[in-house]
Nucleic acid binder design. Sequence first.
DNA 1: TTCCGACAGTGGGGTCGCAAT
DNA 2: ATTGCGACCCCACTATCGGAA
Length: 506
Amino acid sequence: MLLREVVEAADAVSRTASRKAKIGVLAEVLRRLTPEEVPSAVGLLLAKPRQGRLGVGWRTLAAERSHAPTATLGVLDVDAAFDRLAVATGSGSAARRQTELDALAGAATAGEWDFLSRVILGELRTGALEGVLLDAVALAADRPAASVRRAAMLSGDLGEAAAVALFDGPDALEDVGLVVGRAVLPMLAATASSAADAVAATGDSSVEYKLDGARIQVHRDGDEVRIFTRTLADVTHRLPEIVDTVRGLPVRSAIFDGETLALDEDGAPRAFQETMARFGSETATAVALRPWFFDLLHLDGRDLLDEPLHVRQAELQRVAGEWRVPAVRTADPVVAEETARAALAAGHEGVMVKGVDAAYQAGRRGKSWLKVKPVLTFDLVVLAVEEGSGRRSGLLSNLHLGAHDPDGAFGPPGGFVMVGKTFKGLTDRLLAWQTAHFPTIETSRSAHTVHVRPETVVEIAIDGVQRSTRYPGGVALRFARVKGYRPDKTPAEADTIDALRALLRG
DNA sequence: TTCCGACAGTGGGGTCGCAAT
DNA sequence: ATTGCGACCCCACTATCGGAA
């Protein structure tokens, strides 16, 4: 298939808001692919190349390039070019990447290059990603969407599931199952405002400590152990101590779901940043990571995915009890709240509340898993606003937030110290208001940023703060979002940098 | 007819490795 | 040695479509 056909389909998908129409367009393209084209075409349509990330970002793409007058590139030509980009490494690789990009751009029309650029950056913005494409595969292959979804989630690869659905017959699709050693998409959680509310929704529940680390999925098959992240990257080589731990468990084969984090000398959890410094490093070993498991998807030849949580937990307790996340089974909101308080007192993030009768829904953000974390709010002052992009083009979106510095510890007394940005929590109405308001108090303007007089107070919710080298106050907001503007407050009444810094020591 | 589940999009801070400077 | 880029950990929230109720 020609790349042009994929690009035209993507353009058609962009032009309609109707999901059914998007699905129809995509299904038509999928039907015309050959088997060997399916994984790369799916990679293009999801802006997730089959090869993974190509080591090319917006900066590398910024160079001016010339294009072909007519469309001759095939889907497999692009796939081959992506192969060459993905393997470019070592001294001189940046120049080789540029050469390769020049060649690809030169073989593509201007419209095709615009599309390929978005694929390479990983942001197609056509309003169709995994969810929509999965339905399109089901339509094109005339198979139940649930079967395609299950195959995609259990193989961790929609491209592979699509190829099976389209070409290998109904039985082959149903036969795609859990394989020890092959990563499965992890189940995700929705948010609840309190442990009591969460238990009210999930009934008989497992209330578990929510740890502030990195998600891990650990597979063991005999002596072979593999560890995957939430996005299914293989990080086995970085976590030898977890490999050893799992090798020591009394199982032949198993798939564990859990979290890993670093503890300090007293056994208290270290800051997320310290866990990540170890988790992300190829060489650091000074800080040990330990696993905490909360689910078991497979044990000694038996898939447990469809078993209720309490059955999976009983098996987990039996084979890896000492590595389990602390958990309390209850339907009592009072007990759930007590557990949440205990989790926080032990230095953890909050709790997860899970219905004990629910199956493991790979890749879904279901209502049977609810996360509960405390929310803090602060009144801060807007220092600047950035122009939005995509659907926020033409609107002032991302706010620069400052805390009051009455004593001048980080600048002139009575000034404001930037502590973070946020674009979250804004409704269309607030975006429109911001866009009208901030230019009226503009002091200067740089490329995409309007700097303003520090007189607009906004209430911001955060999960906490972290140490920062980026911001002058040494502290940055974590997961900041707008709750609403506070026209009733003056900038002098805003919360102080000291109040935020105090959270660092909390 | 109204409600709500699932999705897509919009970006946030921090950390690492690596190549270029 | 330092800097900039890219990948990837963590993540919240709103708008929208279309099936469920």
